[in-house]
Nucleic acid binder design. Structure first.
Lengths: 166, 166
DNA sequence: CAGGGGTTGGTGACATGTCAACAACGAGGT
DNA sequence: ACCTCGTTGTTGACATGTCACCAACCCCTG
């Protein structure tokens, strides 16, 4: 509350550590995933999100919202995944504009084969290195920050943690 | 120790929270930074790393190592920053292959003007939302994970937490 | 039902990152 | 001096993400 302008020793350590962890963890998980399954992290996120819905399908906008991606980014990425046969675009029954992204057979098989190895990697490189208290702290702190940030509302198309509707 | 294959409730919460926080925090900080200073996060990292060295310069490889970037990525990015006048390339005295990346006047001014606002943003969106215990936990946990990951060594050119020299 | 205003998803241009290959050099042994 | 091997930084081709814009569409009101 006293020095709003700078970070003290521990705060700086936490911030630097977070950034380094973030960079290295991403890299390592992406490597493991790609090597063992041929999927990118982006592919994995799309597939796993779809596989958790019933019907294994979602409107593009909803899928983008779940993943915190822009619609543009998702549209591009779906086009590429579609060409690889992992997902398909279908027309939306009630809305002629919409497309529904559907998990294909191959996509389902891909995510089911990839999931165990990825969970193991997440454990090995992160979860199993933490104490129960640290996991609880990370859980609490991350959700608090997420809540704070979604309260700010994202602009235009780019990204969108749902605009405020007060 | 009992279920290596899946994550329990709290672990899954921590993992999901971490990923969401990561995505939103990046986005928000990048937005604030770009809006207020015209710099990207990548620009900021390069400039602040250089400004913390004495002589305000580093060999490309060393700079890349500090930032956990690939040499290729850094080379490309330095080319762009060079065109904007934020940094310069100079020849390396002892090694005819090397280039030394030097902070320019404009680059120094840019980082000095950008730093306070960026620190404030980091506080507002993250640090000030955490308790002291959480900051300590994040500090400890992130460094532990970083140590674990750097012990694995990065391949080829791509990225490189310094290969093992046991 | 006509029209305004917001929504949906797609597109092209461009910014950025990755990967593999390369030329130029340094360092050590012979 | 020569050869071999590793290092350094750059480059081009390509993969991916961002941004601004657009056409088609939905919904609401007069």
């Amino acid at each position: 509350m006293d020095e709003p302008r700078w970070l003290n020793q521990r705060e700086a350590g936490a911030w630097r550590g977070y950034r380094r962890m973030r960079a290295l963890l991403d890299l390592q998980l992406a490597r493991d995933l790609t090597r063992e399954t041929g999927l990118s992290e982006a592919d994995y996120d799309v597939l796993s999100t779809l596989s958790e819905t019933d019907g294994h399908q979602l409107r593009l906008t909803e899928l983008a919202a779940h993943m915190l991606w822009s619609k543009s980014r998702l549209s591009h990425h779906i086009t590429r995944m579609q060409q690889r046969g992992l997902v398909a675009r279908e027309e939306c029954p009630g809305d002629a504009r919409g497309s529904v992204i559907v998990l294909t057979e191959d996509g389902l098989k891909a995510i089911e084969e990839a999931a165990p190895a990825h969970v193991t990697a997440v454990r090995r490189h992160m979860i199993d290195l933490l104490t129960d208290d640290e996991i609880a702290a990370l859980d609490a702190l991350s959700h608090r920050i997420v809540d704070h940030l979604t309260g700010l509302g994202g602009r235009q198309d780019t990204n969108e943690p749902a605009p405020r509707t007060p």
